[in-house]
Design a protein around this nucleic acid. Structure first.
Lengths: 148, 148
DNA sequence: AATAAATCAGACTTTTAACTCTGATTAAAA
DNA sequence: TTTTAATCAGAGTTAAAAGTCTGATTTATT
């Protein structure tokens, strides 16, 4: 896990970016995604299921099936994905772990932390899949060519 | 765990703040700290041991023993504690989980993430125990009086 | 010297995140 | 209609973080 996101969130975002880059209307299998992202197929399948349930993607069963984006990639922001995967209250709570920390009863670093948190939320809330997808092509290439 | 720190780090910082507020030269027992912080005694004992090994505090064995700060609280910055507990590479790694993410081979949000990370490090790197301790008295009071 | 009160060390357990497996279902194509 | 290739659902496993327990050691006090 990075400092901010769980592995699940990371893989969810990577998968969505991959789906954004595939031809519209064409279903991509979990195996294909797992292969291109170099992550476990079974795990990514679970995550794709969750993303289906939360409406980010659609699934097609049976032969020729797979997954495709369920919305316009311009309307899927990183923060939406993170909240769907990690829960709506990921961004709550005191940094120092003190109970009942709030603007009224702040801990010693409360205001600075709130600023950092707002910046983080602003960052995740202003980047959508459409903006990020083409910048990610090079990453997918590097993984495929085992440059990493 | 909050977005940034592990429970261990949180309790470590809380314990150090508590020790900063106690009379110089007087050892405080793990039980006392656990009680005032309302966290498990055995767990905090483990953490205090680690903090002893990394030189933040000193321990006195036997009757009348306990723990006390090993350095000047003006010289203990939050980031030092976090690195000691969570490891030096806490602040490494790609937010989106892509391998080999760097300035040369950035992911789609690399530069924004580096900025957030630097702000975070700056925050943790500029607050020492001395600055924070007195602002924390009210938190300890609230916990003791079960106001929370 | 005995007792009491503390840390110390390390094994153990629980919980949560990460990951795996299996069998059922669905649907296209032969 | 049978086969093949996919998702679906949910149980199971593993690894890491969080938390507990126990027994040994240390040291001040009686």
């Amino acid at each position: 896990m990075s400092l901010l996101l769980s592995k699940k969130s990371e893989y969810a975002i990577q998968s969505l970016l991959y789906l954004t880059l595939t031809k519209k209307g064409l279903a991509v299998t979990a195996a294909d995604i797992a292969d291109h992202l170099q992550i476990p197929k079974e795990f990514v399948s679970k995550i794709l299921q969750e993303l289906t349930n939360s409406g980010f993607i659609e699934s097609r069963k049976g032969k020729g099936g797979g997954f495709l984006l369920g919305k316009n990639p311009k309307e899927i922001y990183l923060i939406d994905v993170v909240k769907a995967i990690q829960g709506n209250d990921v961004f709550e709570g005191c940094v120092l772990g003190f109970p009942g920390c709030s603007d009224e009863y702040p801990c010693a670093v409360h205001s600075s932390w709130i600023k950092l948190l707002n910046d983080t939320k602003k960052m995740l809330g202003s980047r959508n899949l459409h903006q990020l997808a083409h910048k990610t092509v090079v990453k997918f290439d590097a993984i495929r060519n085992k440059l990493i």
